[in-house]
């Protein structure tokens, strides 16, 4: 049993954001998806935009994102979130529109929709979760799977025969329509705070209609990486970040 602590004379300094529903997520223990969801919900609360935000959920592990955000949401076909968001924002320029997509959805099957939405400079926030693997389908190789990384479809480790892991931030940054590109991580508390600041900026940018904001969140997949949550967060430091360097790639 834990200890009993009196709450008398104490005030709440952090509580679950209102923009999350009561649903318990299906994410595995320690999964960064939950953290990323929480940060977006905190931002929605802080900006007071629950009634003016429409989110687009992908196909992949975060397919059920619409069950977790207490927001109007659309679930898009695999890879097409940026196309759906394009229509939403063009028809409702006063609304905050964001997509939430994994690496398979955004960089694999949806590569074309992602590139063209960014190239058009759609005034949306794209939240890209890069955990270097297909989570929902059981740990297959993703476009961002690292060289040598073993997955259920690269059992001997990925080689360049399957292509090199794709660095989306670097690619997207070259497009003039894009305003803000940052790669963040959620494996340590300081990085989580930085990720939140980046997301906040990416949402606020929509107020100024100056182009696409693209936030890549380097995240973990403890179950499919076959690691404990703590070990998976360390692997982000050891293997992911050396290949996917954190930082601001563009801020105009």
């Amino acid at each position: 049993m834990g200890i009993e602590v009196s709450l008398e004379g104490k005030e709440i300094v952090y509580k679950r954001p209102k923009a999350l529903t009561d649903a318990v997520t299906h994410y595995c223990p320690g999964c960064g998806h939950g953290t990323a969801h929480r940060l977006i919900a905190e931002i929605v609360d802080e900006l007071g935009i629950q009634g003016t935000t429409v989110g687009v959920a992908p196909v992949g592990c975060s397919v059920f994102a619409y069950n977790y955000f207490d927001l109007d949401m659309q679930q898009a076909a695999h890879g097409r979130a940026c196309a759906v968001a394009t229509a939403l924002k063009r028809l409702m320029p006063d609304k905050y529109v964001f997509t939430y997509q994994g690496d398979g959805d955004l960089a694999g099957i949806g590569g074309n929709e992602t590139l063209h939405a960014c190239n058009r400079g759609e005034n949306i926030t794209i939240v890209f979760i890069n955990n270097a693997i297909y989570g929902m389908t059981g740990g297959q190789m993703a476009p961002t799977t690292l060289i040598g990384q073993k997955t259920t479809t690269s059992p001997y480790g990925r080689t360049t025969n399957e292509g090199n892991p794709i660095r989306m931030c670097e690619l997207i940054t070259t497009l003039p329509g894009v305003r803000y590109v940052e790669r963040v991580a959620v494996n340590t508390a300081p990085r989580v705070r930085k990720a939140k600041a980046a997301l906040l900026k990416a949402f606020k940018n929509q107020q100024e209609n100056k182009g696409t904001s693209f936030i890549e969140i380097v995240s973990n997949c403890p179950s499919n990486w076959k690691m404990t949550p703590l070990a998976s967060n360390k692997w982000i430091d050891d293997a992911m970040i050396p290949y996917f360097p954190l930082g601001v790639f563009k801020d105009q």
Binding site: M1, I3, V5, I12, Y14, R16, Y27, H33, A189, R193
Partner: peptide
């Protein structure tokens, strides 16, 4: 759970919690 009465209410735990299950209190 809280194992020791050493909490400072810094909120690092809730910053890391993927499931938003922690409510953090600090002395007024």
């Amino acid at each position: 759970e809280m194992a020791e009465d050493t909490c400072t209410g810094c909120g690092i735990c809730s910053t890391m919690c993927p499931d938003a299950v922690l409510t953090v209190y600090r002395a007024k």
